[in-house]
């Protein structure tokens, strides 16, 4: 179980986490729809889900954290650690997929997993943006707690929306596509029709 949580940190995982981080950075900068101050409906949120599904929660978290810093560096809106840390916590939760038996590499993603996934998304967002980020924001910037909650609440809602509306269909499609790939018996060309 612990091994599933930590992921296997071989070269493949390192590369995948790096690519995940790069994807996150790119999508954060070019694939987002701004809705509120400091809040984006961003397709980047999907990255930790996929990295988590393929490699486990810890890799998901690392790719999200690095990706976040990267996005801050290339996007040019400065470092905001309060949000980065919150995102890291969220990454851990949405990346939990292998822990409850979802295995999209082998085509296993059922309704049951979808339900747990949605719960994880909600709990993760509540914890990350209902607790972690507001506390850090008020510590760093002595911002008013009420406002901070409001801001991060908006962030949490929009993240959850993306994670569910965009994330679920992607998980279903990816698991189907990876499944048809693993079931094949060598020479796929033999399947010709005509």
């Amino acid at each position: 179980m612990l091994k599933k949580f930590l992921g296997e940190w071989n070269t493949k995982t390192i590369v995948a986490v790096a690519i995940g981080a790069a994807l996150y950075g790119v999508l954060m900068v070019w694939g987002s729809i701004p809705v509120f101050t400091n809040t984006n409906l961003t397709s980047a949120m999907i990255v930790p889900v996929v990295v988590g599904a393929l490699f486990g929660p810890l890799p998901a978290m690392v790719s999200l954290l690095v990706g976040n810093c990267l996005a801050d560096l290339i996007g040019g809106w400065g470092f905001w650690f309060d949000w980065s840390v919150g995102n890291g916590v969220l990454g851990l939760f949405v990346g939990l997929l292998p822990m409850y038996g979802a295995d999209i590499k082998n085509g296993i993603f059922k309704i049951k997993h979808a339900v747990i996934y949605v719960i994880c998304c909600i709990v993760g967002n509540a914890l990350a943006f209902g607790v972690v980020t507001p506390i850090m924001t008020s510590l760093f910037y002595s911002a008013d707690l009420e406002i901070t909650f409001l801001q991060s609440f908006a962030g949490g809602i929009s993240n959850t929306a993306v994670l569910v509306i965009v994330g679920l269909p992607i998980l279903f499609i990816l698991s189907k596509r990876y499944a048809s790939r693993t079931n094949l018996v060598e020479e796929p060309e033999e399947l010709t029709e005509e």
């Binding site: 071989n10 070269t11 493949k12 390192i14 590369v15 995948a16 690519i19 790069a22 994807l23 694939g31 409906l41 397709s43 999907i46 996929v50 393929l54 929306a161 993306v162 509306i165 965009v166 269909p169 992607i170 499609i173 990816l174 596509r177």
Partner: peptide, 23 residues
Amino acid sequence: LKQYVMMLVPLLMSSFAKVENIS
């Protein structure tokens, strides 16, 4: 958001397909 799905699937598939070669 729904349209983003259509763009993200090929992007994710082709990006993670690079992992093997790089590693």
